[in-house]
Amino acid sequence: MLVIKSREKSAQLKGYESLNSRSSLSKDEQAIYSHLKSGFEGEILFDSYVESILGGDMFVLHDLLLSVNGSSIQIDALILLNNRVYLFEIKNYKGEYSYESGKYISKTGYTIVSPNNQLERTTTLFNQLMKQWNYSVNVNEKLVFINKEFTLFGAPPDDRVCLPTQVHTFLRNLNGQETALNPKMRQLANRLLDNHKQSVPFQLKLPDYDWEGLQKGPTCEQCRSFNLVYTQRSCTCKSCGFNTSRIDNIVGNIDEIRLLFPDMILRTHIVHEWVGGEVSIRTIRRLLNSQYKRMGHSHNAHYV
Rank of each mutant, 00 (worst) to 15 (best):
N249A: 10
G109H: 06
S18E: 15
S52L: 10
L259C: 02
E278S: 15
S114M: 07
D28L: 12
Y93E: 00
K131D: 14
D210C: 13
G95S: 02
D263Y: 05
D159C: 12
H299E: 08
S6Q: 05
C240F: 00
F226R: 10
N195S: 12
T268F: 07
S98G: 13
N190E: 14
T123G: 06
T219I: 15
S10T: 13
S239F: 05
D28W: 05
G39T: 00
N173E: 14
R191K: 14
P201C: 04
S26I: 11
G70N: 08
I284C: 02
I44N: 01
N243L: 14
S24L: 15
L64D: 04
L260I: 08
L54W: 03
T236W: 13
G213Q: 10
I105G: 00
P183G: 09
Y49G: 02
R286I: 11
C240G: 03
E29L: 08
H196N: 12
K184H: 10
N117T: 14
L65Y: 03
S136T: 13
N140L: 14
L129N: 02
V50S: 11
Y303V: 00
C235I: 06
G176F: 06
S21F: 07
P115M: 02
H196K: 03
R233F: 15
E89A: 01
K94E: 11
P262E: 04
Y99A: 09
P218K: 04
S26A: 07
T244G: 11
L152G: 06
Q166T: 02
N253H: 12
F226N: 08
L266H: 00
G55W: 03
I44E: 05
L181D: 06
E51R: 13
M264A: 10
Y135I: 09
N117G: 13
Q222L: 15
V271F: 02
F59P: 01
I146K: 01
R233C: 13
N190V: 13
N289Q: 11
Y86G: 11
K9V: 07
N289C: 07
N147D: 05
N147S: 09
T179E: 08
K142A: 01
P115K: 00
Q203S: 06
E278G: 11
G252C: 12
M264K: 13
L87E: 00
K14N: 13
L36S: 02
H168L: 10
F40W: 05
P156N: 07
Y303I: 00
T124W: 12
A301V: 03
I284H: 01
G213A: 06
I270S: 03
S67F: 02
G56D: 05
K14P: 07
G109W: 04
S71T: 12
K197H: 06
L119H: 04
H299S: 09
M1R: 08
V113A: 10
D255H: 12
I75T: 04
L259W: 03
R172Q: 10
G56T: 12
R246A: 07
R22S: 10
S34N: 14
N140W: 09
P207M: 09
T122R: 00
Q203C: 05
E41H: 11
P218R: 01
A189E: 03
L143H: 00
E51P: 04
E120H: 13
S234T: 15
Y104A: 06
I281H: 14
I281K: 15
C240E: 00
T283S: 15
T122K: 04
Q128E: 13
L152E: 03
R186I: 10
L204N: 11
Q232F: 14
Y104F: 14
S101C: 10
